[in-house]
Amino acid sequence: MLNIALCDDTNVELARVERFTLEYPFTKVEVDTFGSGQKLLQYVAKNKTEYNIYLLDIEMADMDGISLAKKVREFDNKAVIIFVTNYDEYMPDVFKVQTFDYILKPVNKETLFEVLQRADHYLHSSHSYFEFSYERNKLIINEDEIMYFEKSGRAAHIYTETKEYKCNQTTSQILAQLDPMAFTQIHASYIINLKYVVGIKCENIMMKRIVNGEIQDTYLELPISRKYKKDFKQKMINYMRKRF
């Protein structure tokens, strides 16, 4: 079940998002609505209520959504925070409070359902998550969705099924966070998720190629260095045994 707190000082928008949220079809949902950040915080403190998702409007008069999120983070580091905003100019700020995502107004049902479904999966999944910072933004993504990392100078590019991110971590820092049964280094520049491996061809690892969420007929080929080949083969065997 998802316990969701909605906070927006515009009654019409608050009612609209509440209606859409209650129509979420994949998991039972309970929703409490608040017309201000102060009311939300007072209610939580008085009733010792725990929410696993906070849907917060950014542009509120008494306390803006980002300030409210910072207050929430003082007593809850695990809840999913999703911002609703009229402007995408807030994006650099919202990720400073460990934000899951943000939705632009006017909120449409399909976008809301997609974000809630990812949040639902995040909250109830036993999978690990990769946390990183880039340009002072704090981000978190499901390890399962990461296809591979590519180091380029000081930065590392993170390729998922749908997006590309960057982080400022060393190879050793990246590996320290990842599940060693699922990820392995194959080259000075590459760390891969064994889930996406199709095979090995000469000096290259064949990876699934995914475009717009669809698996392609062609493969992505990443180089494997000789020093990593033996370890890769053993890890691949162990991974397949664990999987099947």
Rank of each mutant, 00 (worst) to 15 (best):
Y134N: 00
Y134I: 00
Y134H: 01
E135S: 07
N137S: 12
N137T: 05
E145S: 14
E150S: 15
G153H: 12
G153A: 07
H157K: 15
H157A: 12
Y159K: 15
T160I: 05
T160D: 08
E164Q: 14
E164H: 10
K166T: 15
Q169I: 05
Q169W: 02
S172G: 02
Q173V: 04
L175C: 06
Q177C: 07
L178G: 02
P180A: 09
A182L: 06
F183Y: 08
F183R: 01
T184G: 01
T184F: 00
Q185F: 00
I186F: 09
H187L: 07
S189N: 11
Y190G: 04
L194H: 01
L194I: 04
L194D: 01
Y196L: 06
V198E: 14
G199Y: 09
K201D: 12
C202I: 10
I205T: 04
I205H: 02
M206P: 03
K208W: 11
K208L: 15
K208F: 05
I210P: 06
I210S: 06
V211R: 10
I215Q: 14
Q216G: 07
L222E: 08
I224A: 12
S225M: 05
S225E: 08
R226K: 14
K227Q: 11
K227H: 03
K227V: 11
Y228F: 14
K229S: 05
D231A: 09
F232M: 06
K233G: 00
K235T: 04
M236T: 08
I237Y: 02
N238V: 02
Y239F: 12
Y239S: 03
Y239E: 02
R241E: 15
